[in-house]
Computed example of a mutant assay.
Amino acid sequence: MSLRIVVAEDSLLVREGIQRMLELQDDLEVVAAVGDLPELLAAVEEHSPDIVVTDVRMPPTNADEGIQAASGLRATHPGVGVVVLSQYAEPAYASSLLEGGSSGRAYLLKHRVSEPGQLAEAVRTVAAGGSVIDPAVVEVLVAASGRSASSPLASLTTREREVLDQIAQGKSNAAVAEALFLTERAVEKHINALFAKLGLVAEPDINRRVKAVLLYLSARDHSGA
């Protein structure tokens, strides 16, 4: 069966381009193409898609409607994956997108859409519960954190990597503790240690968690895992 997709983009030309590119794939079907947030939410209710592909900024405010949609759908339609497209490598948007967990979420720069197969593959990955974060966004975050020549994850212990893997799934400290048979206090200690090793010590907790996840996803994708 084809994956059913709702496309949301306020530019008619870009919207039609995205729709045409997706429909070139035998396993993808665009069931609606809309131009603003209210139309997007109405289309989700009407068509029950598997995936939403949305611009990050749309009417009515042209602020962060794509992120708002992704956040709202996590609560109202948790089975719907969301691929957010943006013109800029803006880490704040990616961080907001992943605040509730990375599963079934993707953040791509719009120029990736012109690369054959990039958008289609992101849609398939998100539909399977995976995550895709544009490498350019990760690079901006890593550079801001003082990236060394080697991977910042290399210094993590096996247990710290296991904890980070659980965080990447959007789990709370309590859920991580249950999954790894640890106490919550032990999980907190591991999280603080890995934050320090990744150079994320001077950030609010939610920002540190999101950035750590982005680093983890980038390294995982690079290794082909």
Rank of each mutant, 00 (worst) to 15 (best):
Q87P: 00
M1V: 07
S148R: 09
R185S: 15
H77K: 04
V176W: 05
L28Q: 01
R112W: 01
L164M: 13
A219E: 13
I206G: 00
T54Q: 04
L41E: 15
A154F: 01
K211Y: 00
D26C: 09
I133N: 00
A94N: 08
D55P: 07
V44S: 09
L153G: 10
S148K: 08
V201L: 06
L41V: 14
S96E: 14
I167R: 10
V6C: 05
V56N: 05
S155Y: 02
S172P: 01
A143R: 13
A128C: 02
L200S: 07
E203V: 10
A33Q: 04
A193Y: 00
V123H: 04
S148N: 08
P60S: 05
V53K: 06
P91D: 05
V84Q: 01
E90S: 02
R208A: 15
Q25N: 12
D134S: 07
R74G: 12
L37T: 05
T125L: 00
L119I: 14
F181Y: 02
D134V: 04
Q118C: 07
P135G: 09
L85N: 07
P59F: 06
V30K: 05
G81Y: 07
H190C: 11
A154V: 12
D134F: 06
S148G: 15
G170P: 08
I206Q: 08
R161E: 12
D205H: 03
D36R: 10
L156W: 05
S223W: 01
V138R: 07
G72R: 13
L85K: 00
P78A: 14
D36V: 03
P116L: 02
I167Y: 02
V80I: 09
L73P: 11
E90W: 04
T158G: 11
G130I: 10
R105N: 09
L28C: 04
L24Q: 14
P49F: 03
G81R: 04
S96G: 14
S86H: 00
M21E: 10
A89D: 10
E121W: 02
V84R: 03
F195C: 07
H222P: 00
D27R: 08
Q166L: 09
L109Q: 08
F181P: 02
V53I: 06
V163N: 01
L156R: 07
Y216S: 12
V176M: 08
A143V: 04
E178N: 10
G104S: 03
G146D: 04
T76N: 06
A175S: 12
E184V: 12
S96A: 15
T54A: 15
K211A: 12
V138I: 12
G199I: 08
F195Q: 01
D64W: 02
S71P: 00
V137Y: 04
L40M: 06
Y93S: 11
T125K: 07
G100Y: 01
E29N: 11
E65P: 03
A136G: 04
V113L: 12
P91N: 02
E16K: 15
G117L: 06
E9A: 12
A92R: 10
L194F: 10
D27S: 12
S151I: 11
D221A: 14
Q169C: 09
A89R: 04
E39G: 03
R161I: 12
S103R: 14
A92P: 00
D221I: 04
E39C: 02
L164C: 10
